[in-house]
């Protein structure tokens, strides 16, 4: 019946943030696009601050559809990875310190990705959240939405299928 003593909040936060940073900082294309991840509990919001090199239509101007797609795909992959890591870190199956030391599990691989462009991406910061609709042993299905100034008016959404990394090789 004995309960585990509660860990101090900063210890828990530090461990979770360190694991997330290790996951995100290892991917060069995330740095290239300047994407950051904001964590609230287990929920992640991806943020892509606007910069000149994201522009695809200089006349409007608008964010390149390819940058939007990459943002959505990255949000899906990190979101999916994080949902699995979260369980394993919380259950103690994976030690966050080993993640930080560079022993990252493989990332899921995209099988297919379909992007709906709902409106043009403005020269503003963009935000995205992924929802894992199914996460099986081999396959996962993820939906993701991106918005800018107004959460209720997404400028793009996507659905993708992913091949899960096999832990036992």
């Amino acid at each position: 019946m004995g309960r585990k003593p509660m860990e101090p909040v900063q210890v828990v936060k530090q461990r979770r943030d360190a694991a997330l940073n290790a996951l995100v900082n290892g991917v060069p294309y995330i740095q290239f696009l300047g994407i950051q991840f904001d964590r609230r509990g287990d929920e992640l919001t991806a943020v892509m601050p606007f910069k000149e090199m994201l522009i695809g239509n200089p006349m409007l101007p608008a964010i390149h559809g390819g940058a939007t797609a990459a943002f959505l795909e990255m949000t899906s992959i990190i979101g999916l990875s994080w949902s699995i890591l979260w369980e394993k870190i919380e259950s103690g199956e994976i030690d966050a310190d080993t993640l930080v030391a560079g022993n990252m599990p493989s990332l899921p691989k995209t099988i297919d990705f379909t992007v709906d462009y709902l409106r043009s991406g403005l020269p503003r910061d963009a935000y995205a959240r992924a929802r894992v609709n199914r996460s099986g042993r081999r396959y996962a299905s993820v939906h993701v939405e991106a918005w800018q100034d107004n959460r209720g008016r997404p400028f793009a959404q996507a659905t993708g299928h992913f091949l899960m990394p096999q832990s036992d090789g």
Binding site: G26, Y29, H64, G66, A70
Partner: peptide, 24 residues
């Protein structure tokens, strides 16, 4: 380009970079 890598373990470029090229 190494800046386009999506999988640091293999050096494979991210699908998003391929997506951008295909879209264009």
């Amino acid at each position: 380009d190494t800046r386009f890598i999506g999988d640091p373990q293999t050096g494979v470029i991210h699908g998003g970079a391929v997506f951008a090229l295909l879209d264009t």
